[in-house]
Amino acid sequence: MRPLTEEETKIFFTKLSNYIGKNIALLIDRPDGLYCFRLHKDRVYYVREDIMKVAISIGKKNLISLGICFGKFTKTLKFRLHVTSLPYLAQYAKYKVWLKSNGVMTFLYGNHVLKAHVGKMSEDAPEHKGIVVMSLDDVPLGFGATAKSTPETRKMDPTGIVVYHQSDAGEYLRDEDTLF
């Protein structure tokens, strides 16, 4: 476990800003305590400071997880967000899409979001931007990237892809072994 280097922080924040924009500042500067990001086995964890300090005494091999895992760095130093970061992404997301009940299950099985399944969508979402997928009763399901900007999706036919799937809550079951 170690703090992120400046380069890693830059990569991580650029990725994160794709989804929550300037709201990263709210993650860094929280009124309810001091939180920090820590890198452990290529994974980035968002931890409260006192928990981080306790975790220091646990050896590298023995420490499995701490705080909330936001995602991992690939070997080529790209950052991949994990579904475990969803609570924070959903809280601060700039763009959201709400699915009708018939689209929820297909999305949770790892499929892209089709136009026919979209209940409503943020008005100003641009193309290829991070977006959080919710059910109509405001339960976050996962996240992805927009295929088209919101005005353009209006012209699409019902079978067209609106949001490319990146991660969904179904991964908690599907990738149970490798997720943590």
């Binding site: 476990m1 170690r2 703090p3 280097t5 400046e6 922080t9 830059k10 924040f13 990263i24 500042a25 860094i28 500067d29 001091l34 939180y35 920090c36 990001f37 400071e49 981080m52 300090k53 220091i56």
Partner: peptide, 18 residues
């Protein structure tokens, strides 16, 4: 960086990167 770097210090660094 030291593992024990305080979160307070880290917050300022993260802010400047952001």
């Amino acid at each position: 960086e030291s593992v024990t770097r305080s979160a307070l210090e880290e917050r300022e660094i993260n802010k400047s990167i952001l």
